[in-house]
Amino acid sequence: MLKKDISDYDVFITKNDKINENYYLLGISRPSGFDIMAGQFVNIKIEPNSIQPFLRRPFSVFYLDKYEIGILYQIKGEGTKLLSTKKNGTKLKMIGPLGTSFPLEDSFMKNIDGVFLIAGGIGIAPLFFYANRIKAKYEYLDINLIYGIRDGGFLLPEDYIKYYFSSIFFSLERKKVYEENIYSGCNCKFFEGNIFSALNSFEFDSLIKKYNNPIFAVCGPDPMLKAFIEWNKDKYFESYLSLESFMGCGFHACLGCAVPKSSGGYIYLCEEGPVVYYKDINLQ
């Protein structure tokens, strides 16, 4: 039985485009009455009339408009490889909304004077949606992006970058000179290495001093999140992490998404995550 406010929908592909060397942008029809908060996710069955692939795949929402749900994805296994072949009009099954979200309540945001989003790879997806929701409610807030990627083949098209962010720090493991000329009119800085080459830079240190009470939202692979927690240990920035995990069911039934809590025991990311307060978990 599905829990309250969670439904199983028939949805249809409206687009399935490869937007750079590594990422696809999937558009699916937005069901009537469906809403989702930034950081929550949906579970999609790619072949509704087949048992293969057996498990649904979890996806963060990249954007939400009146008629369409946007999902950014990368081919990482048989499920996403199969998804990349699907054409417009194909029916999928979608369960959602699932999980927890990034904070957006007035009682919380009224104390915030700046936003820092830290993304590693495909972790940009829920943070982009969060930026959209922040701008819709709190247009006065600066949103700064720190984005770690392998190389220029992971850069998003300019239209997805230029509208929301006051400044962008790119960290590329393999940096080339031409990448600094990709985004016209963008307050962008490029660094070689992982995200900490940006976070430990003079430029970032100068920027963060502008704010008295910023919030950090972070999404990426576990090693990056673990390193961020260590980096933030003596800084105490208010921070929320979106964790990546296998989520076979989405309802705390398969127990495949358990993460140790700082206080002992476990949280299950499909219900108590994927967004968690940084002090509440113990990434081993």
Rank of each mutant, 00 (worst) to 15 (best):
residue 156 L to Q: 03
residue 262 S to K: 14
residue 206 S to V: 11
residue 275 V to H: 00
residue 36 I to S: 06
residue 198 A to T: 05
residue 255 L to W: 10
residue 45 K to P: 07
residue 237 F to V: 10
residue 280 D to W: 02
residue 138 Y to E: 07
residue 78 E to R: 14
residue 11 V to H: 06
residue 166 S to Q: 10
residue 136 A to G: 07
residue 188 C to D: 04
residue 119 A to D: 01
residue 105 E to Q: 11
residue 222 D to R: 08
residue 22 N to M: 05
residue 65 D to T: 10
residue 162 K to P: 01
residue 103 P to F: 02
residue 247 M to N: 06
residue 73 Y to A: 05
residue 33 G to Q: 05
residue 269 L to N: 01
residue 31 P to R: 10
residue 64 L to R: 07
residue 122 I to L: 12
residue 239 S to K: 00
residue 67 Y to K: 14
residue 181 N to D: 15
residue 235 K to H: 04
residue 34 F to C: 12
residue 117 L to H: 00
residue 170 F to R: 07
residue 158 E to T: 11
residue 10 D to L: 09
residue 268 Y to H: 15
residue 276 V to S: 06
residue 142 D to T: 05
residue 93 K to Q: 13
residue 136 A to S: 13
residue 14 T to K: 12
residue 270 C to S: 03
residue 252 H to Q: 14
residue 94 M to C: 08
residue 101 S to Y: 11
residue 182 I to W: 02
residue 253 A to H: 14
residue 131 A to I: 05
residue 113 D to Y: 02
residue 40 Q to C: 03
residue 161 I to A: 03
residue 207 L to E: 06
residue 124 I to F: 00
residue 251 F to V: 13
residue 282 N to L: 13
residue 253 A to Q: 15
residue 94 M to H: 06
residue 160 Y to R: 04
residue 27 G to M: 11
residue 138 Y to K: 11
residue 83 L to W: 09
residue 267 I to P: 07
residue 29 S to P: 11
residue 51 I to N: 15
residue 163 Y to W: 04
residue 241 L to F: 04
residue 229 I to H: 01
residue 221 P to H: 01
residue 80 T to G: 03
residue 22 N to K: 13
residue 55 L to H: 15
residue 249 C to L: 08
residue 86 K to R: 15
residue 88 N to W: 02
residue 176 K to P: 02
residue 119 A to T: 00
residue 82 L to P: 05
residue 170 F to H: 09
residue 179 E to Y: 15
residue 68 E to H: 09
residue 118 I to H: 00
residue 181 N to P: 05
residue 78 E to Y: 12
residue 256 G to R: 09
residue 170 F to N: 07
residue 25 L to A: 10
residue 5 D to L: 13
residue 185 G to D: 09
residue 189 K to R: 15
residue 194 N to K: 09
residue 254 C to M: 10
residue 72 L to W: 03
residue 145 L to F: 00
residue 246 F to T: 15
residue 40 Q to K: 05
residue 128 F to S: 09
residue 165 F to I: 07
residue 244 E to V: 00
residue 250 G to A: 12
residue 16 N to S: 14
residue 167 S to G: 06
residue 177 V to P: 06
residue 219 C to H: 00
residue 69 I to C: 06
residue 223 P to C: 05
residue 239 S to R: 01
residue 107 S to L: 09
residue 188 C to M: 02
residue 187 N to S: 14
residue 21 E to G: 06
residue 74 Q to C: 08
residue 249 C to K: 09
residue 10 D to I: 05
residue 105 E to V: 01
residue 42 V to A: 08
residue 109 M to G: 06
residue 195 I to P: 02
residue 170 F to D: 06
residue 250 G to D: 13
residue 50 S to P: 06
residue 61 V to G: 04
residue 278 Y to F: 13
residue 115 V to L: 03
residue 101 S to V: 04
residue 68 E to D: 10
residue 198 A to C: 08
residue 123 G to S: 02
residue 55 L to M: 13
residue 140 Y to W: 12
residue 229 I to R: 03
residue 36 I to C: 05
residue 210 K to I: 06
residue 281 I to Y: 01
residue 32 S to L: 14
residue 138 Y to S: 10
residue 154 F to T: 00
residue 231 W to F: 14
residue 20 N to F: 04
residue 184 S to Q: 14
residue 195 I to L: 14
residue 99 G to M: 02
residue 54 F to N: 12
